[in-house]
Write a protein that binds this DNA or RNA. Sequence first.
DNA 1: CATGACTTTTGACCTGGGTTAATTCCAGAA
DNA 2: TTCTGGAATTAACCCAGGTCAAAAGTCATG
Lengths: 175, 175
Amino acid sequence: MKLGEFVAQNGIPLSRTEGQYVFRQGEQDTSLYFVKTGLLKAYYLSADGKENIKSFILPGDHIGSLMASHAGKPCSFSLLCLRPCELTKLPFATLYEAVRTDPEISAAAVDFLLNFAMKKEIREYELLCLSAEERYRRLMENTPDLLKLVTQNEIARYLGVTPVGLSRIKKRVMA
Amino acid sequence: MKLGEFVAQNGIPLSRTEGQYVFRQGEQDTSLYFVKTGLLKAYYLSADGKENIKSFILPGDHIGSLMASHAGKPCSFSLLCLRPCELTKLPFATLYEAVRTDPEISAAAVDFLLNFAMKKEIREYELLCLSAEERYRRLMENTPDLLKLVTQNEIARYLGVTPVGLSRIKKRVMA
DNA sequence: CATGACTTTTGACCTGGGTTAATTCCAGAA
DNA sequence: TTCTGGAATTAACCCAGGTCAAAAGTCATG
């Protein structure tokens, strides 16, 4: 993919150890991050201290705060490394600039965004239409490997239930 | 916006009366629709007959099935007119072609998709992190006019609760 | 004014998942 | 092998919202 080359040439390598943040909710971070190795979680922290996990980010995936990069607002979520990570950091402005001047990059960006939008639609569908149990079943089918990489606590926060709730769902599903 | 011109020049005008479908879940429809006037709802129908409303589409908004247009799958939701509608239909392939050849269109498409992705992120956040009551409060604040355009039944299905549930939430919120 | 056909509200009851707190399970350190 | 601290399970209790069914609005039409 042409976009991959662009990122490799214009991005800045970045290492993070387990437990380090890439950025925190409320901060201003206008870069995109492409994951070479490692594992991260993007999560919202509510005013009353509840954590909700937006997504897990695996090698080959990418992440960044659209709110911060494109709308000039603070990041609405935090990005934390669950494993040591090798990332490539690309300032959003660099890509946005390239979109205006390089047609090939621009077309690649459109593809990139189309895929991104489709993923978001699927997640929206799952949250709107499926029960927590159905979401858990889907996760088991679609990304069973993820279940081994993160704690059940985190799976729960990703599915939109508490760890206690997920434990009950598991029992029910296995029976 | 440059994209608006492109749509006006390359799109096909389309009229629909209240109650007519633009496309139905399961069909193959690879066009984007830009709303001039009217009101539509995009909704999922589950196997057991439950309706969940993905979004309401107002004048100035746009809609289309990414799954169908970009991934070659059938539409995952239906698009129904709640009022007589004047639309502009633009085959996705036409736009996609233009993206490859016209840098200006391409850049506009990137902006378009960025805005789209941001909206999706907000909805994802609301569904993941907020209770039905909080979602209702937000809706009242952000788009109070919508409450007058559609039935409470439909508002409920948009918020992810039943009409009965919403009636109770309303009572609670007003008190 | 009366008649349907909705839409909304209410009531009774049920259930999935939240909350809190106590256990039980580990896996790694000593 | 034994500690120890976090992860997961279990139990008891609670509540938001679901379901079903009845009642009460609402409103266009004859």
